[in-house]
């Protein structure tokens, strides 16, 4: 049997506020298999976003093991972690986080700048990806010329253009109307079904969570189920 893609053992994360240590995650253990689509749920302050950030490699655990694809990412340096993210993680944020000065096309191109692909190769990939999210017509538009749902689709294109192992989504539908939210969730489902992308999504919207294959609940920094 293959080892799980994400292997979490006794993970602890503590923040210090002033001179007080605030535990956010206490002793979390969790496996996520390749091709899984899980939703992390829980009330605000439960630590679900922190867990997502740790898996995405934009925050570091206080203690415990966090192995992804066999590599313990808590041991990586800042620079190594940046490279690791560039090749392994695709991000989708609640507020899309697109660069307002760049067009849809250029926003999607952004992560490809960190690769050794030629301009023509980049173009090929970007057009393909934007076609995937149905925005071929809009690729020369700036974010403020797009609707929320469209912006989030650009963000999805940006997340998958490098063909990362894991997609991390932080409240991807939190800022969208119902129709756009459904579109985005369908798109994520399709990425999971057809392409086998491993997706980890933080949400507190039960409707959104249903799109996932598996739900994981957190409360006060602990897992309620496995």
């Amino acid at each position: 049997m293959n080892p799980p893609l994400v292997e979490i053992r006794n993970l602890v994360k503590t923040y210090t506020r002033g001179d007080q240590a605030v535990p956010v995650l206490r002793d979390i253990s969790l496996n996520i298999e390749r091709g899984d689509f899980i939703s992390l749920m829980g009330p605000s302050g439960s630590g679900k976003s922190t867990l997502l950030n740790l898996i995405a490699g934009i925050d570091k655990p206080t203690a415990g093991i966090l192995r992804i694809d066999g590599e313990d990412i808590s041991k990586l340096t800042e620079g190594e972690l940046a490279d690791w993210r560039a090749s392994n993680i695709g991000f989708i944020f609640q507020f899309y986080n697109l660069m307002p000065v760049l067009t849809a096309y250029e926003n999607v191109e952004l992560p490809l700048l960190l690769t050794n692909l030629s301009k023509a190769e980049r173009r090929e990939r970007i057009e393909m990806t934007l076609g995937m999210v149905g925005l071929t017509e809009r690729m020369d538009h700036y974010p403020n010329e797009l609707s929320g749902g469209q912006q989030q689709r650009v963000a999805i294109a940006r997340a998958i253009v490098t063909d990362p192992t894991i997609l991390v989504c932080d409240e991807p539908t939190g800022d969208l109307d119902k129709q756009s939210a459904t579109d985005v969730l369908n798109m994520l489902k399709e990425l999971n079904d057809r392409l086998g992308k491993t997706i980890i999504m933080v949400t507190h919207d039960a409707h959104a969570a249903e799109a996932a294959r598996r739900m994981v609940h957190l409360e006060k920094g602990e897992l309620l189920d496995g």
Partner: peptide, 19 residues
């Protein structure tokens, strides 16, 4: 890995150190 029609055959090498 399962790959779709639009997916990329070659895994791109990423390195900020030498990018």
């Amino acid at each position: 890995k399962q790959r779709g029609a639009w997916s990329i055959s070659r895994r791109v090498s990423c390195s900020t150190a030498e990018h």
